[in-house]
Nucleic acid binder design. Structure first.
Length: 585
RNA sequence: GGACGGGUGGCCUAGUCUGGAUAUGGCAGCAGCCUCCUAAGCUGCAGGCCGGGGGUUCGAAUCCCCUCCCGUUCGCCA
């Protein structure tokens, strides 16, 4: 329960009492934030006007006369039909600062709920490196998971590895049959057609791309290769452990590279679940049997099985959701059903971070789960695709920016910045800080926009280190650290009579709202609230920092206490966004 | 064609679910601020028919209807 919640409760109670006393009844009313300076909570009186046959202004006037400031309410005044409340800033300051001082980095966190929440994110096909079109997924997913953890839930993050299907089989064939000479030639040719010289990156996910391309090309031209791949696929689907094993091995090699990339942006997943596992353990088969037995089931002339989802609101030319091919083998979505049943056996709440191309698939999945008698539904969190100014991202056409390249570029840019302004640091230290800043800039830039908004990737925006950016927040944190380092010893002082400046109150007010932000960002899956809050907090801190002398004078202890509290919350906001909180930069 | 999402100053963006007072910030532009805690900062100026049109309402960026533009999707692919 935050002080803001308490304040709202008191406001509602006092308005209710006043309404009852003046007019004999308590109609529904709302409390809201106000754009007016110095107003912390407002009650619009317009809705009362009709029933009471009085002007909103008069009602606000009468109510304000009835309400005596007490507790957290310091004043209640009427203005233009609104009843405006002001919070007692002394209590706000004292309560907030004391709470932050005593709780430290757990300030803003909620007590354990015992709820198990599973967040599946990233899950890109293990057939190539992660490009920035997909980078939204791990960043949103990881940030959401961290926020949910702060909300008190037991969070597990999970990557679903698609090691089944044509794509991975082609890749596997390429890894095992394409010669090093062919690979070298392919790399050269690719560079030539794109007109740029891509440097060879010594990472498995990048290296294997050439094998994959050669395999695709040869499959198109050579019938024998086509046959080999088709036969591998058939053996895979028949459950041949040898084929399944080699494909999985290839996927594992690829995944090593992907994991390395993810760890580069501070993303580590708790669990990797393999799609092939649901074939191996028979659970996909069980899904098939159960669906076949349902009243919605049907069979085409060829023998493919489907359920008709018309009555579930699924739209389209065809409302059939096919779950076996005519040869009886399962499809991706069938395995995904088994996977979701598995997830629900391990978690109370299941969240899938998905690209918007999965919308229909996700809807079909939910309907099928309903048919299977699943009581809970997965909650999808969709994000729109990232494109480049020249158009849609395509690995084949070379219209692509890899996440690894973005990270390198951003870190290099941060290194240049730090080199130009800090002559005193060692090379090693500069590299270390540049990494933190560069990665932070990327994560912030991605998570700051609402996921459903389409996103055009521009280098100058991705590498922006000013204003509404990751480094801006990190810089505010650095400033706080520096003051505290220079200050050395001081006694904490939460006496509100020493922190009465408008800028100080505004900063404290923001600090007091942190819990609400985490609740919205986590439980309501509105992850972009976090960077917005962080930016407001950093701005308030910077203003406070600029105006006041903090490390001397009669208010030294109180101001340093506020600096310490701001640093605590800034560091935690950064942490929730998977960004490092450097002590210098 | 249907379904779903987006459209907010030159560019990017918050607010839309749950209607409320002068629409949030940033970038770029202009003008200032480092004898004092890192100027990746701070202050000020300029810039808006909230895609367009109707409607509901005391009140609409927000709700309803129509319409335009952009994206995604409508596989016995994954």
């Amino acid at each position: 329960m935050s002080i803001a919640d308490d304040f709202e409760k008191e406001v509602r109670a006092s308005v209710s009492v006043a309404l009852k006393k003046l007019y004999g009844s308590v109609p529904e009313f709302v409390t809201e934030k106000s754009p007016v300076e110095g107003v912390d909570l407002a009650v619009p009186c317009f809705p009362f006007a009709k029933a009471l046959r009085k002007s909103p202004q008069a009602i606000a006037e009468e109510l304000s006369g009835e309400i005596v400031p007490s507790g957290l309410i310091s004043s209640a005044v009427s203005a233009g039909g609104f009843l405006n409340f002001r919070i007692d800033s002394a209590m706000l300051v004292k309560n907030t600062l004391e709470e932050i001082c005593s709780k430290g980095s757990s300030y803003g966190s909620f007590p354990p709920t015992g709820m198990r929440v599973n967040v599946e994110h990233t899950s890109t096909n293990p057939t190539g490196p992660i490009h920035v079109g997909r980078a939204r997924n791990p960043v949103i997913g990881d940030t959401l998971a961290r926020c949910l953890g702060k909300c008190g839930h037991e969070v597990t993050t999970e990557y679903y590895v698609n090691d089944v299907g044509k794509q991975v089989v082609i890749l596997t064939w390429g890894v095992n049959n394409v010669t090093p000479e062919e690979v070298a030639e392919e790399i050269e040719e690719h560079a030539r057609t794109l007109g740029k010289n891509e440097k060879e990156r010594d990472k498995t996910d990048h290296r294997l791309v050439a094998n994959y391309r050669v395999a695709n090309k040869r499959m198109e031209k050579e019938p024998e290769v086509q046959n080999e791949i088709t036969s591998m696929l058939r053996r895979f689907e028949a459950g041949d452990p040898e084929v399944i094993g080699t494909v999985r091995h290839t996927a594992e090699i690829m995944l090593d590279g992907l994991r390395e990339t993810l760890s580069g942006i501070n993303v580590a997943l708790d669990r990797y679940t393999w799609e092939s596992g649901f074939i191996a353990d028979g659970s996909a088969r069980k899904v098939v049997e159960k669906l076949k037995a349902s009243e919605y089931a049907g069979k085409t002339d060829d023998g493919a099985c489907y359920v008709d989802l018309k009555s579930f609101g699924v739209q389209g030319k065809n409302t059939r959701f096919t779950f076996t091919r005519s040869d009886g083998t399962t499809l991706y979505t069938t395995r995904d059903l088994a996977y979701h049943l598995d997830k629900f056996s391990r978690a109370d709440r299941v969240i899938d971070v998905l690209g918007e191309d999965q919308k229909l698939g996700s809807k079909q999945l939910c309907s099928a789960l309903e048919i299977l008698g699943c009581e809970k539904m997965p909650e999808p969190l969709f994000y729109a695709f990232v494109s480049l100014p020249e158009g849609k991202m395509s690995t084949r056409k070379g219209v692509v920016v890899y996440l690894d390249d973005l990270i390198d570029e951003s870190v290099a840019r941060a290194y240049e910045e730090i080199k130009s302004r800090r002559k005193d640091l060692s090379e090693e230290k500069m590299r270390e800080i540049a990494r933190k800043i560069g990665v932070g800039a990327i994560r912030y830039n991605i998570v700051r926009v609402q996921p459903e908004k389409q996103f055009v990737f521009k280098w100058e925006e991705a590498l922006n280190f000013d204003g509404n950016s990751g480094p801006y927040l990190q810089y505010a944190h650095v400033r706080a650290c520096n003051i505290l380092k220079k200050a050395g010893e001081f006694t904490r002082d939460t006496d509100p009579s020493k922190l009465t400046d408008e800028l100080e109150i505004r900063l404290v007010k923001l600090l007091s709202e942190y819990g609400d932000v985490l609740r919205t960002a986590g439980n309501e899956k509105k992850v972009h609230m976090l960077p917005a809050y962080g930016h407001d907090l950093a701005t308030a801190f910077n203003q406070f920092y600029t105006i006041n002398v903090l490390n001397s004078g009669e208010f030294r202890n109180a101001r340093l206490t506020l600096v310490e509290c701001a640093r605590t919350v800034l560091a935690d906001v950064l942490n929730c966004m998977g960004m490092d909180a450097p002590e210098e930069m």
